[in-house]
Write a protein that binds this DNA or RNA. Structure first.
Lengths: 191, 191
DNA sequence: GTCTATACTGAGATAGAC
DNA sequence: GTCTATCTCAGTATAGAC
């Protein structure tokens, strides 16, 4: 479990590079150079760039799933769990400022390329959406749980996009404060 | 004024293609094919792809400026003008569903490429930001006008990103309704 | 001012030696 | 499992004919 295979290293490097430079702009040479293996070598591990993307997406899906489960355990109340989601904006603010949201930017890029894996990439959004929806239901907002989940997702995306464009971390904090207030008002309006 | 030059046609075609396919993914061949000229030919008009991007950005900046001036004339009250901004989400919903927001997606892509023109592309955001800020000030929200402008920009971006990912026009309408309510509450809380 | 021919570059991909 | 060598192909760019 602890010894990472070369394949794992490739996926890990590709994951980072796809986030930082974008999928299309990242070449085999970039990944090979990052992993310190020859270009030809990793055709032994992956037959095409699409295959690497597929592997990256599945790693991200698995990691996201694990994170959500962790939040579920750590947060006693649904409100606390939703707050965990909101506060990744703060935790990851430096990276968001530089590269945007890893979920949103990949989704946007693959949509433009009309790439075959775009639906799988959007599953990342769905993972969050379903999880948030469940938390809002547990909160007592059965009727509009999905609406609230989508609203929160959209707000987070917008914050990431603008923080990236304006290179502004303070804006993230400003908006997170408003999101906290919004979340509290959701609790008060519980049915 | 009415006879468009070949150069204008190239910029127009590039503008569309950059929006639909992304900047990097659009090749010279794509543009040449769209304008019906030979590939080699437009090196007469533009020395590089970067130059075309630059021209496209400047056309977008000019068009945006004109649109903002139009809204300023058409809308009697600042509230009406801000509402004009909110409702481009509705007017352009079909394109947003397919390609996302033209401002946000270009900004995100150029940030990842670390492209030299990224700051110019972000000027598009600034144009909206400054204009919205002025409207909020006119509304009587002098103290937090910029905060409100950025908040509105972020919300719009988020809506566009998610509508694109989930291919969902109804979501746009749902969120625009909430933005209308939010705008009304801004007026009520006027100092 | 427009087009053809051509050269250069780098990315994606394969074969086969070690 | 890793390497080098090599191929193809598309995108970028230039020179010069018409």
């Amino acid at each position: 479990m602890k010894d990472k295979t070369t394949r794992d290293h490739i996926v890990e490097a590709a994951d980072q590079l796809f986030y930082q430079q974008g999928y299309e702009h990242t070449s085999f040479s970039d990944i090979a150079h990052s992993v310190q293996i020859s270009r030809g070598n990793f055709y032994y591990h992956f037959k095409s760039k699409d295959e690497i993307l597929d592997a990256v997406i599945h790693v991200r899906l698995a990691n996201t799933q694990k994170m959500l489960e962790r939040w579920e355990i750590e947060g006693e109340q649904p409100v606390d769990r939703i707050r965990s989601f909101i506060h990744i904006l703060i935790a990851n603010r430096a990276k968001i400022k530089r590269y945007g949201c890893p979920v949103g930017t990949l989704s946007t890029e693959l949509a433009k390329l009309d790439h075959g894996s775009k639906d799988e990439a959007n599953e990342l959004f769905t993972l969050f959406r379903v999880w948030l929806r469940r938390q809002f239901k547990l909160l007592g907002r059965k009727a509009d749980a999905d609406k609230l989940a989508m609203h929160l997702l959209a707000r987070s995306q917008g914050v990431a996009t603008l923080a990236n464009a304006f290179h502004d971390e303070k804006f993230i904090k400003q908006e997170v404060k408003q999101l906290d207030d919004w979340l509290n008002s959701c609790v008060e309006n519980t049915v």
